[in-house]
Amino acid sequence: MPFRPRTAVSGAILATAAVLPSPAVAAARPAAAPAPPGWSAAPAPGTGAAPRAQDRPFFYLEGAPGTVLADRLSLSNPTGRSVAVRLRGSGAGAWLTLASKEVRIPPRTRASVPFTVTVPRDAVPGDRSGALLATGQAGGRATVPLHLRVTGPVLSALTVEKVSVRGAGGPAVIRYTLVNRGNTVLRPRIAVRADGLFGPELRRAARTLPSALAPGRAVDLTETWPDPPALDAVEVRLTATAAGGAHGSATASYTAAPWWAVLAAPVLLLAGGAGGPAAVRRRRRGAGAGGTRGEQAARRAAGGARPSGDEGADAAAELAGTGPGARG
């Protein structure tokens, strides 16, 4: 078969194109992951062997208040140079005491660092979270989670405090404070109701608040009342509940009145107070002059005395007005 240079060159170009990746394929490849620090930190296996993927990924400790709990951290250095690592705890790890806060690991060596966690005597039962942090002096950082459960009786308690209602001529704002008086984390539910002199004014069913409330913590909250009454005296009651039987409630008074009613009330009271004594005084003066005209005429008729002049005419008219034929 005769040799054809053009065909051979074309074949070589196609072969080269098949081997070299196209720019689109090269761009589609992900960037290389950053190189690891060369050392690692993990909870030490109970057997003393090197940590494996199937071993525990975090520390879990459990004990009553006043208990001292112990565990070990494993530091591995597979590199060919020495590595210095600093250690510290955070969160619940603040109760942690390390055998050494700085460890130097020789090349291709694994170090085991003991530590203890002392649960305070006044710690409330419940779950705590934290971490053991390892930082390399030459770079790199590792975080090992730590979960701690403080055992003991669980108490769920919740109070509603500092309830007040503010607003005039528009929407009102109900302010209050929720306090977790127990030793467990609570997710409170709050219900609102208001009752006035003329009947119910507000009914708001219980709803779960968006955030949890840690033991011993207090949070200030508000409720908007879009359409409070314009004229009424209202008692507002807030009721909070949570899991474990936690329950608390508190009330506040809210009086709504238009401006003209507020201004007119003192005037009406003064007018009523001034008219009453005057009427009583007039009645007493008439009684002190010998009684009513009818009583005077009756006494004179019984005694045979004959009234004269205008006095007789007034007495006769009074008797006629009180006789059996008189009209009411």
Rank of each mutant, 00 (worst) to 15 (best):
P125S: 07
G139C: 09
T109Q: 12
G48L: 01
P120S: 06
G66F: 08
A142R: 10
T67R: 15
L146G: 06
W95F: 12
G126E: 08
V83R: 13
G66S: 11
P107V: 09
A138R: 15
L75M: 11
S129P: 00
K101R: 12
V119T: 03
T143I: 14
T143E: 14
D122Y: 00
D71P: 13
T135Y: 12
P78D: 08
R86W: 05
G126S: 04
G48V: 01
D127E: 13
V83W: 00
A99W: 11
S76R: 14
A53Q: 13
D122Q: 10
R56P: 03
G139A: 05
P57G: 04
R104T: 15
L132M: 15
G139Y: 10
V144E: 01
D127R: 12
D122P: 04
T47V: 01
D55S: 01
Q137K: 15
P78K: 05
P51D: 01
R121N: 13
Y60A: 11
P107Q: 09
D71Q: 11
E102G: 02
G130M: 03
P106T: 04
A94Y: 12
A70Y: 09
S129I: 12
I105M: 02
T118W: 00
S82Y: 02
W95N: 10
K101A: 13
R52M: 08
